[in-house]
């Protein structure tokens, strides 16, 4: 029992993943492992394939070649098996994507009832607890459009957490927010990190990457160029592309 890492498979494993849009390659031979409880932040210039990488992990984007495993299980093709696996992988989108015709608490309680077969009252109670945790229980009976961006994104995080996921994916969760609302969303994410959630975060928030990440993965034109601890990445990047990227964002 000295090395539990060997006994348990990584939470996420990508092996030789390739993906192209038409003739344009967007992911080129991606190999990545994320262990239980690890927080990996993906950085890189726009068009690097960060979002695509994030979305391949629950097959919102199918891949052309390679293998993806979640908790040791290969990602199934379309159908019920895929739906079951997706239930264990939470994702938070840039545009929130809350269900526009449902109230906030309905948004959170919907999937636990339909997918996990939880009773309606239990699901609502659990949803209210989650909303309290992200600080918006007073918004429970409003519709998404009545909330601010920051509140909507926190509701979206609560909705993903309601499925008790094994891993959470964040696809630029603060990029569509007004600056004053970024922090409230990052605070919720930081509290998840402290609880030991396994997370893959695509973001441009360098402060969050420095503070919360175990590893920083730097991508450029469809490839993983660097994979290192944040201290090392921010102070002594090895590749020219990472140096160039950091030079552009850290000068102002």
């Amino acid at each position: 029992m000295s090395s539990p890492a060997k006994a348990t498979p990584p939470m996420i494993r990508l092996v030789g993943v390739h993906k192209r849009f038409g003739s344009q390659p967007v992911l080129k031979d991606i190999n990545l492992e994320i262990n239980r409880g690890e927080v990996v932040v993906v950085l890189g210039p726009s068009g690097a394939g960060k979002s695509t990488l994030c979305r391949t992990i629950n097959r919102l984007e199918p891949i052309d070649a390679g293998r993806i495993e979640i908790d040791g299980v290969a990602l199934p093709a379309e159908g019920r098996a895929l739906a079951r696996l997706r239930a264990d992988v939470g994702i938070v989108f840039q545009q929130f994507n809350l269900f526009a015709h449902k109230t906030i608490v309905q948004n959170v309680a919907l999937a636990p009832v339909l997918v996990r077969k939880l009773g309606k009252a239990d699901a609502r109670q659990a949803a209210m607890q989650l909303l309290a945790r992200v600080g918006i229980s007073d918004q429970a009976d409003k519709y998404p459009a009545q909330l601010s961006g920051g509140q909507q994104q926190r509701a979206a995080i609560a909705r993903a957490l309601a499925m008790r996921p094994k891993v959470m994916l964040f696809d630029e969760p603060t990029s569509a927010l007004d600056p004053e609302m970024v922090q409230e969303v990052l605070d919720v994410m930081t509290s998840l990190v402290q609880e030991g959630m396994t997370m893959l975060v695509v973001t441009h928030e360098m402060g969050f990457a420095r503070r919360a990440a175990d590893r920083v993965v730097f991508m450029s034109v469809g490839e993983i160029v660097e994979d290192s601890p944040p201290d090392q990445f921010f102070t002594a990047p090895r590749s020219d592309r990472a140096k160039d990227f950091l030079g552009k964002i850290l000068t102002h």
């Binding site: 629950n58 919102l60 019920r80 739906a83 079951r84 696996l85 997706r86 239930a87 264990d88 992988v89 939470g90 994702i91 989108f93 545009q95 994507n97 809350l98 269900f99 526009a100 015709h101 919907l110 999937a111 339909l114 997918v115 979206a156 909705r159 993903a160 499925m163």
Partner: peptide, 27 residues
Amino acid sequence: VDVGQAEASRALGLTFTQTLTTIVVPQ
């Protein structure tokens, strides 16, 4: 209906039919 609605629904583990009947068609 925005494609993000169906994506969020599928990502939560709802099946194709559940997504169509509870998320897309009502909107």
